[in-house]
C-alpha cells in the first residue's frame, strides 16, 4: 500500500520529470521570431555583403532542414536515386540552397517581420504566420513558416509560404522541369546545380 506521503512525492516527481522533459522544447512561434531577429541583425548592421551572406548561411544551417527540403524538392525522383547519387545530391543541394537563400535575403535591408499566430497541424508540423511590414517601396507581405517539430527541442524550417505561394513547391516544380526537359536525367539536374553553385 502506497502511503499518502509517498503518493504525493511520486506525483511531484512525475511533474518535475515532465517539466524537465519539456523545459528544453522550443515553441515554433518563438523559434521563428528568434530566427527572424537573428537574420535582421545580420542584415541591419553595417556588415559587408560577404559578411552578411556568411552570417545568413550560418543561421540557415542551424534553423533550416536543408536535407529535408532537398529530398522533398526531388519529389518522385528521390526514389530513383542510387546511394552514391543521394550522397552527391545532398552535398550539391546544400551548397545550392545556401547560395540561393543567402543571396535572396542579402538584398533586403531593414526587414521587419512580426510573428502573428501559430497553428499546430499535427505532431510533426506547425504553421507560424507572420507579416513582413510594408515599406515605402513594397506592400505588406504575409509569410507563413512550415516548421518541422518532430524533435521539439530542435524545430526546423521546412518551407516559407509567401502570400500563399510555397517556395519549396516552386523549387520542386523547377527541379522537375529541369529533369523532364532533359529526358528524365537526374545527372542533368546535378550539372545545373553545379553551374549555379559556381
Amino acid at each position: 500500500m502506497i502511503s499518502k506521503k509517498n503518493l504525493l512525492l511520486s506525483v511531484s516527481l512525475i511533474f518535475i520529470f515532465i517539466g524537465t522533459v519539456n523545459s528544453n522544447s522550443i515553441e515554433p512561434d518563438i523559434f521563428v521570431q528568434s530566427t527572424v531577429n537573428r537574420a535582421s541583425e545580420a542584415l541591419n548592421n553595417n556588415f559587408s555583403k560577404e559578411e552578411k551572406i556568411k552570417k545568413l548561411k550560418t543561421i540557415a544551417k542551424e534553423t533550416v532542414d536543408i536535407r529535408g527540403i532537398g529530398f522533398y524538392t526531388l519529389g518522385q525522383y528521390r526514389k530513383t536515386l542510387s546511394e552514391d547519387q543521394i550522397k552527391e545530391y545532398a552535398i550539391l543541394f546544400e551548397q545550392y540552397f545556401l547560395k540561393s537563400f543567402a543571396s535572396r535575403l542579402a538584398e533586403y535591408s531593414n526587414p521587419e517581420i512580426e510573428v502573428i499566430a501559430k497553428e499546430k497541424l499535427n505532431e510533426k508540423y506547425t504553421m507560424v504566420s507572420s507579416k513582413l511590414v510594408a515599406t515605402d517601396k513594397r506592400p505588406e507581405i504575409k509569410i507563413d513558416w512550415r516548421i518541422y517539430t518532430k524533435d521539439t527541442e530542435n524545430p526546423l524550417i521546412r518551407d516559407l509560404i509567401i502570400e500563399g505561394l510555397s517556395l519549396a513547391r516552386t523549387q520542386k516544380e523547377e527541379f522537375s522541369s529541369i529533369i523532364q526537359s532533359n529526358d528524365g536525367s537526374i545527372e542533368a539536374l546535378f550539372d545545373t546545380l553545379k553551374k549555379f553553385i559556381d
Binding site: G68, Y72, R146, L156, S166
Partner: peptide, 13 residues
C-alpha cells in the same frame, strides 16, 4: 494549398 503527403515521406530527424 499544400500537399502534406509529399512531406510525410521525408524524414530527417
Amino acid at each position: 494549398t499544400q500537399n502534406d503527403g509529399d512531406w510525410e515521406e521525408v524524414e530527417t530527424q
